[in-house]
Design a protein around this nucleic acid. Structure first.
Lengths: 209, 209, 209, 209
DNA sequence: GATTAACCGAGACGGTACGTCGCGTCTTTTG
DNA sequence: CAAAAGACGCGACGTACCGTCTCGGTTAATC
């Protein structure tokens, strides 16, 4: 007796189709890249007819957005090791790992380059990023409470400082990123934070002091 | 005696077409965005026939790549104020300014999102970035020589640390960037550099030396 | 249960399109001539989109071939009046009539001049001619049986002799052809046949035997 | 139409170009066929630039027409053996021979099918045919004078009757034509002529009586 | 257990843009 | 001055993929 866990009503095969098409979408994305993404190909790969896809998704873009959103919805646990440095290392490495698999590469390419021009993709991108940012903030606030960071350190600012160099390499310089990259950005971030450079900007706090 | 360095022969009109089409390409990009970029529209805007465009550029992509490359080839002077902090501020602000005009926005979108999947665009992106990086390195090396930064500070690493948060905001969080953003990233970078966090990573260099 | 003999499945609309495009093709041919035959125009005239035409026919040429073949497939009844002369007259006149309407002129031009360089058109041309030839042969064989023609008269040869002067005028001298022309070629053919000139060529059959 | 062998003035290389292009045109016609006839190809084959061709000929069509006309201008001698039958045989065979070489085939195709839709080609075709017809008429008139043919036999009619079956085979049935074909059409024509079937049509001269 | 409504497979279609080919014109440079 | 060289406007070609639209035929929940 097929049934959908959420609505419970007359679903049945609907969920199966949805899953299959999502999977096929990501698979095609990984295999052939964003540019060669075709509704017809996706449908065929999912063992489904093109019209069926259009019955459920308005657009190729909607489909892609949906598939990526579903994929990104996996929870990444926020570390809590007690020590700021190891927490940050864990965070930085989780970013690196997320994009180091072939699939991760393809998704990166799709979300940040290929389909980036789509408003929904942009929104999803921002949303995912903001969400992770919000969930990781305790790592910083705990450290402040522990006295490991200066009072007033801005958690969001710190976490962006942490993540920024990794994304720079992923999206622009196309250098390989690995754990050493992650560790290096931790060093920088920690140094800056400890020096109080990540407190909200006040009017000209003299730096060399 | 007009002469074209590439083809060598009968220029004059050829160069004019090239310029007009480049301008039209960027104009269309700014007006309508990457997704709505059409060879026919570009040609029409340039007062030129479609086939003429195809005579000079293999592809819509080639054309775009070429136009963007040409556009990015403008030399941005490397500051040399004598003080590291003001130099870095100038550098950071130049990035911010480059992408804060409507045109800059469009070009950013094209280079980093819309057309990012094209190998040539990716290459151009890397090339432009690397080039600026290389030309800005003296800012850092001079500072090291002046004793304003620790011996062994890695110029490229420092400059990436400087640029990364700006690009993060431009490409991912879509926060507005302004001069305050630029100044903030300077603060962070300086703090990290002064703390020695931007020297090449060695295996745990013993402190007492 | 509508069904198409060729594709077999979901016809109805398909057949309508096919008919409309065929008609439009011939109409354009008649109106503007072979040289000005455009797929886009044909499609528009048929109330159909260009791509739809290309979905069913590989080529402009395939379309034309097909349309002409369909058009020529109309059965022309073979006369059987009992008298050879009237039979031949009917045959000759049917050729004349077939090409004396404006439409006939256009089709003639297309089949024998404009599109004649296409192998399929050539084949169709031959096929149509051969077919008519074959179906008309009884006219001759009956006459032989009746004793109205010498034993051994070659039907194909006779019919070609009948048709040839008409086609010569249609295709080369561009003289007008009318019923008088038809009647004249009948006279010639009959005279030759009765004189035994349309028996297979043997090596000099001695007369007195 | 800058200069002509008739005006004789500042010709020089002009004539050479004209010849070379004519030759190249026919060569291309023979090699690749009418459909693949390109001004650029012809020019290249003639060792001449495209614009030079257009300087001398208005059109691709003009060029082709001109080249064919020049080619067809070769005088074919009208036979005069004293006997009608041998004269006709010679005439018929000369037609067969003219189109039995590969070059003849190509020219046939161009004049009668490929380019037949061009008014000038059509005119040239008619002209050439009429010209030959006119020049061959003495063969018939002499025979009438000699009493070898009935008084009043129409020379043009007779000669068309002679030629028609050959052209039918060349242009429609695509049967091979050879000397036997020529001889056969002579037999038919002679038989008809001797039976008086090639006198101008009067009102119903009873045939078989 | 039959009915019926939702969904799916199949495939043609209108439509937009692509990139290509050949024509005939024009301008500039060379001999 | 004519020819070489080559870009250009132009019109049509044939292709790819988009998203839409019937049609039948299943399938599964409801009466």
């Amino acid at each position: 007796m097929p049934s959908d866990s959420s609505t419970g009503r007359p679903v049945g095969r609907g969920a199966k189709v949805r899953t299959a098409v999502h999977a096929a979408t990501l698979a095609e994305l990984v295999d052939k890249g964003y540019a060669a993404l075709t509704v017809e190909n996706i449908a065929q790969r999912a063992g489904v007819h093109k019209t069926t896809v259009y019955r459920r998704w308005k657009d190729r873009e909607s489909l892609l957005t949906d598939a990526l959103a579903e994929h990104m919805a996996t929870d990444i646990p926020v570390p809590d090791t007690g020590a700021l440095e190891t927490d940050l290392r864990a965070l930085a490495r989780s970013i690196v790992q997320a994009f180091n698999s072939p699939a991760g590469q393809a998704i990166l390419a799709a979300m940040f380059t290929g389909a980036a021009h789509l408003p929904e993709i942009a929104a999803a991108r921002r949303h995912v990023f903001d969400d992770r940012l919000a969930r990781a903030q305790p790592v910083v606030t705990r450290a402040v409470e522990r006295g490991q960071l200066p009072e007033g350190t801005d958690p969001a600012e710190l976490l962006k400082t942490l993540a920024a160099p990794i994304y720079l390499r992923l999206l622009i310089t196309a250098e390989p990123v690995d754990e050493a990259t992650a560790d290096q950005t931790v060093r920088v971030t920690l140094a800056a934070a400890r020096a109080g450079a990540l407190r909200p900007v006040r009017d000209d706090p003299p730096v060399g002091e």
